[in-house]
């Protein structure tokens, strides 16, 4: 009976779920990509000689990691339309919130990745008279990437799941797809199970791919 319902739902509404999945993957991707750019800036500010930048970025990271992501989504959803001169859709507000949230986690990942590079590399670059900027760009960051990439992959997998919170605001993604289907079929549990299975398959595949990447990176040492 349950299985039959699931099959029926899938046959009729597969495109809704699949569109939802693409929404989810797209949301997670843009969040992590833009979050990485922003997070790199935050990490570099945190590692700079400036105490002020160190302090500001410290607060930034603490606040974003110390409050629930759902709260942050509400916060930006309420705040942005008030302060931004152009009209912003709910989706845009939520994307900004997700990016900002992700940047805090990514910043810590990048900072740790940079600090894991052997201190001797910094000293060698400095002893050659290299500027901080050139040292970062040509010596430290290329080596830190190996430490950072797997963690970024992980952040992507986390985001595939976390973006489900965007369904609260009916942003097009997999959890919203579930809501749409259950509200027309009134078959909540089978619909939810389908969404769950899709999440499971996607995170499973992504995790496997990540392991593969990690092994590749290790082999190149």
């Amino acid at each position: 009976m349950f299985l039959e319902n699931m099959i029926k739902i899938w046959q009729r509404y597969d495109y809704v779920f699949i569109n939802g999945l693409f929404g989810t993957l797209w949301l997670a991707l843009i969040t992590v990509v833009v979050g990485t750019i922003l997070g790199t800036l935050v990490a570099l500010m945190r590692l700079s000689h400036s105490r002020i930048l160190y302090g500001i970025t410290g607060v930034y990271i603490e606040v974003l990691r110390g409050t629930p992501i759902l709260l942050q989504l509400y916060f930006f959803w309420l705040l942005l339309p008030k302060i931004v001169p152009v009209t912003m859709s709910d989706t845009a507000c939520i994307i900004v919130a997700l990016i900002v949230n992700s940047s805090a986690y990514v910043a810590e990942v990048i900072r740790a990745g940079i600090q894991a590079v052997d201190k001797g590399q910094t000293e060698a670059a400095k002893s050659l008279g290299m500027s901080d900027r050139n040292m970062m760009q040509h010596i430290i960051l290329p080596q830190a990437v190996k430490n950072i990439l797997p963690a970024l992959g992980n952040e992507f997998i986390v985001m595939v799941k976390e973006t489900s919170l965007a369904s609260v605001f009916f942003v097009g993604e997999l959890m919203t797809a579930y809501k749409t289907v259950q509200s027309t079929t009134f078959l909540a549990l089978p619909s939810l199970t389908i969404a769950g299975l899709i999440y499971l398959i996607v995170t499973f595949v992504l995790t496997k791919l990540l392991r593969l990447l990690e092994r590749r990176l290790q082999a190149s040492d």
């Binding site: 060698a124 670059a125 002893s127 050659l128 500027s131 010596i139 080596q143």
Partner: peptide
Amino acid sequence: MVFQHFNVFPNLTVLENITLAPVLE
């Protein structure tokens, strides 16, 4: 300066290790 633990740059080839700083700096 030459260090006890060499501190050569593993992400660069032998040639790049040598030319990087003169070219950049």
